[in-house]
């Protein structure tokens, strides 16, 4: 692997991008699909867990410990474990672990968000005659939103990164580009896959940040 290799095998060969655009695009789509599905499941589960942790204060520690434990489970191990159960190419094999990894940060941030609502605001809302539903949905939730959105941002970005690892079971989106390149010792798809996954991660981060800013106009006004 010396000069000859370098001549045949640059870090990135641009024509490949043009030729294999369909492959790139389908990998991208799969990558985003997996991300969205995992985030969706993660948000749903974390909302439930957060609701429990808020309602029953003692539940926060065990919930945090459990989601924390799940978070430390090596991703390779998780994909490998579920593959024989659901099948390598089945969605649950990838989505379940990916969703699991989001739980810790989502639950932590959601709970923190609701805890950050000033007691006076809650007291005033109750005293004014807001029903519990109205209070939670129209007052506490918007005020918890900054924390929740930060959690979603962090979870989304790390999910984008982890989806690439799911390539080991054949569901990697952009990760599959990396692997196909590796197998053939052909660097371009590797570079493209890797770079794109970083770019997508940053783009998702920026996008969610913008959405968050739009949803919370009051946080942008200068304080008196």
């Amino acid at each position: 692997m010396t000069v000859l290799a370098a001549a045949r095998n640059p870090i990135i060969r641009w024509e490949w991008l043009v030729d294999e655009w369909d492959q790139i695009r389908s990998a991208l789509v799969e990558h985003l699909t997996l991300t969205v599905l995992s985030m969706g499941l993660g948000i749903l589960l974390s909302a439930l867990l957060a609701a429990v942790a808020i309602r029953y204060r003692w539940a926060l520690t065990p919930i945090t410990a459990t989601t924390g434990l799940i978070y430390t489970l090596p991703s390779v191990a998780m994909f490998a474990l579920l593959a024989p159960i659901f099948g390598n190419l089945a969605r649950p094999t990838a989505v379940i672990p990916l969703a699991g990894y989001t739980l810790l940060i989502l639950v932590t941030n959601t709970v923190a968000g609701f805890r950050s609502v000033p007691r006076a605001v809650r007291d005033a809302a109750e005293g004014m005659g807001l029903s519990p539903f109205r209070r939670i949905v129209t007052v506490e939730l918007p005020l918890a939103l900054p924390y929740i959105i930060t959690g979603i941002r962090i979870a989304s970005v790390s999910t984008v990164g982890l989806v690439t690892v799911a390539a080991i079971i054949g569901q990697g989106g952009l990760g599959s580009l990396i692997f196909s390149g590796l197998r053939r010792a052909f660097w371009t798809p590797m570079t493209v896959g890797a770079s794109l996954s970083i770019i997508v991660a940053l783009a998702v981060d920026a996008l969610i940040y913008l959405i968050g800013a739009l949803l919370t106009p009051w946080t942008r006004r200068a304080a008196h």
Binding site: P118, R119, A120, V121, R122, D123, A124, A125, E126, G127, M128, G129, L130, S131, V139, P142, L143, T216, W218
Partner: peptide, 22 residues
């Protein structure tokens, strides 16, 4: 219903508790 009762009573507290997002 307790919510009806409270809507017919004005309630002012020390830390005020205005909704920051409104």
């Amino acid at each position: 219903p307790v919510t009806d009762l409270r809507r017919s009573i004005g309630y002012v507290i020390q830390q005020i508790g205005l909704f920051p997002h409104r």
